[in-house]
Design a protein around this nucleic acid. Structure first.
Length: 1010
RNA sequence: GCGGGGGUGCCCGAGCCAGGUCAAAGGGGGCGGACUUAAGAUCCGCUGGCGAAGGCCUGCGUGGGUUCAAAUCCCACCCCCCGCACCA
């Protein structure tokens, strides 16, 4: 691996080094003093926020960083708002991926060894040590343990305000007991069933395979297609040619059966019948619930010219040769419907032209007599849709697979949606989709139907290179999310929850409606065994649905020795296949009491041989923290975990413990590209504190994108964020260096620009509070950091230009900083903590309350006035640019008579009510006070409507005062002498401009240099 | 196919729900200037077209419509992205 260096490091290396030291310092302080370890405080409102625990099969990356950072910002905000916040973490190890990695490292797989060496080297610099650690990875538990420990380091170096005491892994023996409890509750509620199920399967490895076990599994999507088997009895024999089709309803249009002359078919005993099918098909069917014994072989050639009986219609049709037939697709036997299947149509044409083959098999007469049989009426198509499409696409022959596949797709889709069965079928007038169901039913009644599963794409291999097929598992355990009573409860819970951003609610509803049977256990992997059938292991998405409850007591279980006891009990339950009643009822009694309040604490204490207080405390602690107030995650989990989270809570807990809110953020890409291992562009989280900085990354993550859009991590943009951070840091340290002013001035004697800044500060506090309450994280950061940064810069610039007194500037700056540091704490906690202490405080700003808003200091008029001044500066600059004048003196005529302002205010009101320009003018002129000024009113109203006069204006007094106070600032911006004239009483007005002054739009006269 | 999201200036991206202050925030990139021995960093200005006074024209996927007024509302069309399960 090349040595990584970020752009920020190159440009701001020294600065980063400085703030990274600061970060480490405060992390030490925080975690040493355990300020984020949460204890119940009766009477104090609590906030329980969780982010799904990570699956620890590798190191965390910036994608985790985004989600956990957002979670931490919220946690820190809530803490500042006076909540007792619990933000815990644990580690997910259930399932097959970690197991598979261990297996492959054991086997010496070079890819995995390379990858995992790299992961480890992110944390361990000595190559010998890396090797040593890697050697332990042949045991999956060591992988889990290693990564769990480095995740903690990474999370701490991001400054996350988590309670690390409560951590556990999903493989802990006591956690097994918890899951045993959960699954018996679910089973007793009737939510668990058993049945058959189709999975991806590797016969060579003897196990079901997941995406991560498949070669290129993260790049392809594999469909399991359901083929219909249709049995054709060979005329004069008890053997069946078994064809596979996706379109059984086309059986009425059959003209013949295709075989490939070169294929060696097998004769197999299948469930007591004799089937002729391809060898791969026989093999696959053996895994799909059929009892298959191969007893003989027959070459395709030998079948040609024979006849089979088509079921349902009892028609004799010939067996003919076709080269498109593939032994690896379906059964290697195809029944031909040339009117509606492009392949069949083209194969028939090919065969008719192929004199050699016709002669070879002596089938010339038979073939010549075959005509397609049309059985489906399709609007906008002729009698033979297959023919139409084949001709339209210009298919050459049956070797032209690409076009034929396309043609097949078109005909399939068109007929499925728009086709109607004709009179020569069993179901005339029915739509194709309905006819399909009925035809299957009819075939089945005749015993002529079967099912076969096939993968699409067909050639799928495990990472070890073994073929993958579809297999049927007969005794699969399911969670029955389709249970109507369960589903109703889940919906009730969802409807009571906040979903932020709200647009994802629809996704939840869709998922809820569609959820039904979900396999919940596998035969492989880490995790908890299904207690009553321990050959199965509860699968990883099914054992992580209500574990937030476990956070509330995990540290007490670990700290009291209960973990050992529960672990032993769990083992007894599993070893006895659920028959050890004593062990099982102890587990049930314990969790029933702690989580549900059922039963008696004394009894439970007795069963577990512990103090009654311990049990009661756990119950109290659970009851204090629950429910989950907020679960923060990514939308990719809506279709699985987040929905299961709701279902299981609704199914197991009483309503008062149902979760309150789910918040979501989208994923992270890097430099415009998806991050993936194969691209090698994954940004590991451990790079953040070493090659960027935690606060810089937090600031960037929070500001660069809204929660509901993808965050594109771009080093160039990070650099620009860093440049702001540098500016911020310099200004803040200047303020601190100037010290805290000892006296505060009288608010009313302050300069206008200082009052503007104070107003800005208070408005920002008010606005960002609203942003945070609605989880608008980006809005909060943009205002709290970026906007206030430009405000203070603007303030300092203006204050300097117009000579505001040093004391006043220092006072205002300090006023700002005292509040700023507190509202920035959630997003950049380390720098905030440092600033707070440099300001002379000794408490932790991380625990300081959010600042109060002084509503009375918020003054919109000051903003408007400043806007008008800025706009006027722009106007002057534009005039200078266009005229290319060299200005000597610029006269600005501000503030026409008060009457003008009154008219504009009334105009704004009328237009706001929806009045047109004409109506507004008429309404105003109708008033006695404006009766004789129709011209003036009309002029002002039209200037307002066309935008010459800004939508928001200040009073004449404030506007005039702003210009007067800011004269020197204007001067500095336009590089000329500036004279502010009262438009009602100008001292110098050679071109009579003053009368053009409008409210919010002063008139300008520029005197050229001679 | 079903469901969801989206198309904005050279690029990324806000705005759209609650139409006007939008030639359209912010950033990147580019250009010019200040500073510097120089480079980098930093700061200032410009970055749709036209314009000898703050203006005008074109413009937010395409085509229509509603309105005094549309990037924002309505209709149609085109294009792009994501999810669809047993897998974390």
């Amino acid at each position: 691996m090349r040595k990584f260096k970020s752009k920020v490091e190159e440009i701001y290396g020294d600065f980063l080094k400085e703030i990274r030291d600061i970060e480490r310092k405060w992390q030490n302080e925080w975690y040493k003093s355990g300020i984020f370890n949460a204890e119940p405080i009766p009477g104090k409102p609590k906030y329980f926020i969780t982010v799904p625990y990570p699956y620890v099969s590798g190191s965390p990356h910036i994608g985790h960083g985004r989600t956990f950072t957002i979670g931490d910002i919220v946690a820190r905000y809530k803490r500042a708002r006076g909540f007792n916040v619990l933000f815990p973490i644990a580690w997910h190890i259930t399932g097959t991926p970690i197991q598979s990695v261990a297996d492959r490292i054991m086997k010496g797989d070079p890819d995995d060894i390379g990858l995992y060496s790299w992961y480890v080297s992110l944390y361990v610099s000595d190559p010998e040590q890396v090797k040593k650690i890697l050697n332990t990875f042949t045991n999956p538990w060591n992988i889990a343990q290693f990564f769990a420990s480095v995740y903690i380091r990474d999370f701490m170096s991001m400054g996350y305000s988590m309670d690390f005491r409560r951590q556990f892994t999903t493989g802990d023996p006591d956690y097994n007991a918890f899951i045993i409890w959960q699954y018996y509750r679910l089973r007793n509620a009737g939510y668990i069933t058993q049945g058959s199920h189709v999975v991806l399967y590797s016969p060579d490895e003897g196990q079901a395979v997941g995406e991560h076990d498949i070669k290129g599994g993260d790049e392809i999507t594999i469909d399991i297609m359901e083929f219909n088997l249709v049995k054709f009895r060979l005329d004069g024999s008890n053997e069946y040619l078994v064809a596979a089709t996706l379109r059984p309803e086309t059986i009425y249009g059959i003209t013949n059966v295709w075989v490939h002359p070169g294929i060696r078919y097998v004769i197999a005993d299948v469930n007591g019948e004799r089937w002729i099918i391809s060898r791969p098909a026989a093999w696959k069917l053996g895994y799909q619930g059929y009892d298959v014994k191969v007893i003989g072989e027959v070459r395709g050639e030998e079948l040609i010219g024979k006849y089979v009986i088509a079921p349902l219609i009892n028609r004799k049709v010939p067996v003919l040769p076709a080269s498109f037939v593939d032994e690896n697709t379906g059964t290697g036997i195809v029944y031909s419907v040339p009117a509606h299947a492009p392949y069949d149509y083209v194969a028939l044409i090919d065969l008719k032209k192929d004199e050699k083959t016709l002669a070879k098999y002596g089938i010339k007469d038979v073939v010549e007599s075959i005509e397609p049989i049309s059985i489906i009426k399709l609007p906008n198509y002729g009698k033979y849709p297959a023919k139409d499409v084949v001709e339209k696409l210009g298919v050459k022959d049956q070797g032209d697979r690409e076009k034929l596949d396309e043609a097949t797709r078109i005909v399939y889709r068109e007929e499925f949606y728009n086709g109607v069965m004709k009179e020569n079928t069993l179901f005339p007038g029915l739509g194709v989709n309905e006819a399909r169901e009925k035809t299957i039913e009819a075939l089945r009644n005749q015993g002529a139907w079967g099912k076969m599963y096939e993968l699409e794409p067909r050639n799928v291999y495990t990472r070890s290179g073994n073929p993958v097929i579809a297999a049927v598992i007969k005794d699969q355990w399911f969670l029955n999310y389709g249970n109507p009573e369960w589903k109703a409860k889940a919906f009730k819970c969802l409807n009571s929850m906040k979903i932020i951003p709200e647009k994802y609610r629809k996704n939840f509803e869709d998922v809820f409606n569609w959820l039904s049977m979900r396999p919940c256990a596998r035969k492989r992997g880490l995790g908890t065994r299904l207690p009553w059938d321990p050959d199965w292991i509860i699968e990883s998405l099914s054992d992580s649905t209500i574990y937030m409850a476990y956070y509330t007591i995990a540290h007490r279980i670990k700290g009291s020795g209960l973990d050992k006891k529960l672990g032993e009990l769990a083992k007894r339950v599993i070893d006895s296949r659920g028959t050890d009643n004593e062990a099982l009822s102890s587990i049930m009694a314990f969790f029933n009491y702690v989580f549900l309040g059922e039963g008696d604490a004394g009894k439970v204490a007795e069963l577990l041989n512990v103090d009654k207080d311990l049990i009661e405390n756990m119950r109290r602690e659970f009851d204090y923290w629950y429910p989950v107030d907020e679960r923060h995650s990514g939308p990719d989990l809506i279709g699985s975990h987040l929905s299961f989270f709701i279902f299981h809570h609704a199914g197991i807990f009483p309503e008062k413990y149902w979760p309150k809110a789910i918040t979501l953020n989208e994923y992270v890409i890097r430099e415009g590209m998806k991050m993936s291992r194969s691209l090698g562009n994954v940004l590991p989280l451990p790079y953040i504190p070493t090659h960027y900085s935690a606060d810089l990354a937090r600031l960037y993550i929070a500001s660069a994108a809204d929660l509901d859009s993808t965050l594109d991590w771009r080093d160039d943009d990070v650099v620009s964020t860093a440049s702001r951070l540098v500016r911020f840091w310099n200004i803040v340290n200047d303020i601190i260096r100037n010290g805290k002013p000892s006296v505060s001035p009288d608010i009313n004697s302050l300069s206008l620009i200082t009052r503007w800044l104070i107003s800005k500060v208070n408005r920002t506090i008010r606005d960002v509070t609203m942003d945070m309450e609605s989880e608008n994280i980006r809005g909060y950061v943009l205002k709290a950091f970026f906007d206030l940064l430009s405000s203070i810069e603007k303030y300092l610039e203006i204050a300097n230009a117009i000579n505001v007194s040093k004391d006043e500037v220092a006072w205002a700056s300090w006023y700002l900083l005292e509040r700023w540091v507190k509202i920035l704490q959630p997003v950049m906690p380390h720098l905030a903590e440092e600033i707070w202490h440099r300001m002379g405080n000794t408490t932790f700003v991380s625990l300081e309350p959010w600042p109060e808003v002084s509503e009375e200091l918020i003054n919109d008029e000051l903003d408007i006035a400043l806007e008008i001044v800025e706009r006027t500066i722009e106007d002057v600059q534009e005039i200078l640019k266009v005229t290319e004048m060299k200005p000597k003196v610029i006269h600005i005529y501000v503030g026409p008579t008060n009457e003008n302002y009154a008219i504009i205010n009334e105009t704004a009101k009328l237009v706001g009510e929806g009045k047109t320009m004409g109506e507004t003018i008429r309404t105003l002129v109708a008033k006695p006070e404006y009766r004789r000024m129709a011209d003036k009113v009309a002029n002002l109203v039209s200037k307002y409507i066309d935008g010459t006069i800004p939508r928001r204006i200040a009073s004449r007094d404030v506007e005039l005062r702003a210009f007067k106070e800011l004269t020197n600032y204007i001067k500095s911006k336009v590089n000329a002498e500036v004279v502010i004239q009262d438009a009602t009483n100008p001292t110098y007005d050679p071109t009579n401009k003053a009368k053009n002054a409008l409210p919010g739009r002063p008139a300008i006269y520029i005197e050229k240099e001679k």
